[in-house]
Amino acid sequence: MNSALRSAYFIFSHSLNPNPNPKAFPLIFCLHSLPFISVSRLPLRVSRQEQPSRSVRTSTFCSSSTMAGTDANSLASSSSVEKQFEHFRTQLQDSGSLRDRIRSVAMEIESSTRLIQASLLLVHQSRLTPEVLEKPKSQVGLLKSFYNQLAEILRESPGLYYRYHGDWRSETQTAVSLLAFIHWLETGELLLHPEAEEKLGLNESDFNLDVEDYLIGICFMSNELPRYVVNQVTVGDYDCPRKVLKFFTDLHAAFRMLNLRNDFLRKKFDGMKYDLRRVEEVYYDVKIRGLLTMGD
């Protein structure tokens, strides 16, 4: 008796309900009749007491709630929404494929910097001779050709340089550090920003070397110096620590002129002083033992 009444009530109320989704009905019915016993007592009371007046009220409630707008209107808008998202999808896919191309060149850059790095490791094994630097120097040309490829890809979409910057940023920092190290080994001087741009072929107006990347690259290079000093002393170049210390002190002083934010560059700069201290220690060790005058 009760369940019959209830289902009758439901059919009745749903015939007035403007819900366009008829599938919802069985689910609601099941849930309604099972867990909400305390609530489900309500309609029985109501339906017994106020059956006649409810139909009127329900229908007025329905007609008052026309804020939802017409169905035709919402259909039209949903198709325009779809069109917009379709457009976004093609846009994002295009930028995704551009990114993939950039990433593949970045991977080439990465592997060529690795080659340079590997051949540059030989400077730790013997006294510095121009021959040691021949091989890494010859590999720089390859690196430059990859940067040319990158420049060509990015030239297709001007202004988007920094959108994809993250994809080849760390590779560039490594490249700068290697070039600066080679340059320093050759001349004993710091590779300056325009020179680094020149060497990488990044000196065009729309495609240049980011100054922060350059500075981070220089920091990376300075990480290499303590090891170089230690190994040079081991193979008998006792004057090396003095030269490196001089250069490094100047470099550190120059870096102190920069107002840095709390970012990666700041972190690298903060680490620089430990490398500097290491070089100082090596210089001290060599000097205190009088090795400086003994050498050569």
């Binding site: 120059a254 870096f255 107002n259």
Partner: peptide, 26 residues
């Protein structure tokens, strides 16, 4: 050494200016 030191200083003065402008803008 003095010349390299001063050229380094000059260069870093430029970078400092660049970074200051960039940070202000940011």
């Amino acid at each position: 050494i003095l010349s390299t030191q001063s050229s380094m200083k000059d260069a870093f003065a430029k970078y400092a200016e660049y970074l200051n402008n960039l940070n202000d803008k940011r």
